[in-house]
Design a protein around this nucleic acid. Structure first.
Length: 520
RNA sequence: GGCCCCGUCGUCUAGCCUGGUCUAGGACGCCAGGUUUUCAUCCUGGUAACAGGGGUUCAAAUCCCCUCGGGGUCACCA
């Protein structure tokens, strides 16, 4: 490791699924490290034993991998393996390291035991509030005599460890996005707690120690950490650690402009994955949330983004997450992507919705999302027939240009996967079309279909169009045909549907539509 | 409330540092028209913003100040 090496970290706490907002923070760290040819480290901040869960840790890693944000150091897999020379990379495994530094600070008299009870502290704060002073712990226990302190520890009295702060000092740091930011020590709550009685560290302490010990050069994180920064700097200063650069990214906001959270609907990454958003599209979209390279291009590959990336081009104000734009970008990516891949990605959605059942050995080919779907047969449950990969391919390609996300395939193309379709009788009428005329036209179409030799789109189109063009308004024939086949107000084109559906089903649906009209 | 951060179309943003080229550009959305049997796509056009007020200056979205507005944060959580 050379001295100049840029080192950044993403340090989530596994207390929930990976969120769009945190994914964005991870992304910016990743981009910066790649741009600077530095290292990207994944550290798990699991000091909160109550709320940290392995399943969340797994979700975080899986989501990052899904987005192809790979990391060079840190916790690398679900089995708990790690990679890198500055581990452990889970805070829960770093107890000894923290203890060492706490003792060091205690010895140097830069930290001290505090025996004040919660009630005591509450009282102190209350008095300060009355005097209109900023509430802060001014170091009452710092002045305790050595003898008294020893005695209280021996008696087993509860205590915490506090960091001794310089009074009325300005802490200043350089923020790559905002420039100079400064705080006065009197405004940060006084001598704050760095560890509990059992020497287990609190967030700011663990974080500062880790960043120092892991030689992080650039701390890129959300704006909500801006007020933690002076505390962490104070800790590092007490330990004589070198300063590093900070970059506080603006927050990702919900529609109400508050910090994005669960209550703003689908917030976890896996939900977007399940809805059929492409990782490249999501990545492209969240990159644009608070970053812009200038120019008018908006669709970028990860590689292009890395090349153009700069913290200077980051926005200072928060960005509202707009699903409409994500949909647009996702649609662009779906259209651009290889059809085979889109088909393979759509199949799990069709399986999930009960349209298809793999007729191969599921044990051998688990149809997991994103996994490789074999190009062999499926069983269409609602049509009670086998369906080849080729058929499914045809259907999906009809919708490739129409989908905003892959999970729409089921509701959009359901009539290909169901034997019986239903619809309102009136839907069959074109404009002010009459029932009699519609029946006549459908019967005509049925007759043409019965005489078609080659059941191919071109042939069907030629024959039908020839007849339909006899009318001034060919919709009179084409609209009822399309509705009879799809049952929908909006669908793919009638010739595509007919060709894909096959002559038997087409004729059956036409006859049924005619009957519906005659009986209705 | 204290402290901190921020403020260009409804949304994401370009422009701001290094005032004039800005009657403020692009994208999403929305609206209209064209293509299409329908829907979607695609094409064309339109809609809409410098938070407000003071300075500085020949000239301010751009520099300074104030006000207002929004957000973040104030734990023995992270």
């Amino acid at each position: 490791m050379s001295k100049e090496e840029i080192r950044v970290r993403f340090a989530p706490s596994p207390t929930g699924f990976l969120h769009i907002g945190s994914a964005r923070i991870a992304l910016f760290n990743f981009l910066f490290s790649r741009k600077k040819k530095g290292s990207f480290i994944l550290r798990i901040e699991d000091t909160d034993k109550e709320r940290s869960k392995t399943k969340y840790e797994e979700d975080i890693m899986r989501s990052l991998k899904w987005l192809s944000l790979s990391w060079d150091e840190g916790v690398i897999d679900e089995e708990g393996r790690e990679k890198g020379n500055f581990g452990p990379y889970r805070q829960s495994k770093r107890g000894e390291i923290y203890k060492k530094y706490i003792n060091h600070l205690l010895e140097k008299n830069l930290a001290y035991h505090c025996f004040c009870s919660k009630e005591d502290l509450e009282k102190q704060k209350e008095e300060q509030r009355k005097r209109k002073e900023p509430p802060q712990y001014k170091g009452r226990c710092f002045r305790l005599s050595e003898r008294k302190k020893e005695k209280m520890i021996k008696e087993g009295k509860d205590f915490v460890i506090r960091l001794r702060l310089p009074e009325n000092e300005v802490v200043e740091f350089e923020d790559a996005i905002r420039g100079k930011v400064s705080f006065n020590t009197k405004d940060i709550g006084g001598d704050f707690v760095i560890a509990k009685k059992d020497f287990s560290p609190l967030y700011n302490f663990a974080c500062a120690i880790d960043d120092m010990q892991m030689r992080i050069t650039h701390i890129i994180r959300g704006e909500d950490h801006i007020s933690n920064t002076p505390k962490q700097i104070l800790i590092k200063n007490a330990l004589g650690a070198p300063a590093c650069t900070y970059a506080h990214l603006p927050l990702t906001l919900g529609e109400d402009k508050s910090k994005l959270s669960k209550r703003h609907g689908a917030a976890s990454l896996c939900e977007y994955k399940e809805k059929g958003y492409l990782p490249e599209a999501l990545l492209n979209f969240i990159t644009l949330l608070g970053w812009h390279p200038g120019g008018e291009k908006e669709i970028f590959s990860l590689e292009e983004i890395v090349n153009k990336f700069s913290l200077k081009d980051c926005q200072k104000s928060g960005a509202v997450f707009d699903i409409k734009k994500l949909d647009f970008i996702n649609g662009q990516y779906i259209r651009k992507k290889d059809t085979d891949e889109i088909v393979r990605m759509c199949i799990p959605h069709l399986v999930k919705e009960g349209f298809l059942r793999p007729s191969f050995d599921e044990e051998r080919y688990p149809p997991a999302y994103g996994g490789q779907i074999p190009k062999i047969g499926y069983y269409a449950l609602k049509r009670e027939k086998e369906m080849s990969y080729g058929e499914i391919y045809k259907i999906v390609s009809l919708y490739k240009e129409r989908m905003k996300n892959l999970s729409q395939i089921g509701e959009l193309a359901d009539y290909f996967f169901k034997e019986d379709i239903s619809y309102e009788e009136e839907l069959l009428f074109w404009k002010e079309g009459k029932k009699k005329e519609t029946i006549k036209n459908l019967e005509k179409v049925l007759e043409i279909f019965s005489n078609i030799k080659k059941w191919e789109k071109e042939e069907i189109e030629k024959e039908i169009l020839e007849e339909a063009n006899k009318e001034k308004d060919r919709g009179k024939m084409l609209w009822p045909l399309r509705v009879a086949l799809s049952g929908k107000r909006a669908s793919a084109g009638p010739f595509d549907i007919a060709a894909t559906l096959g002559s038997e089903t087409v004729k059956k649906r036409l006859k049924r539509a005619i009957n519906v009209l005659k009986e209705g």
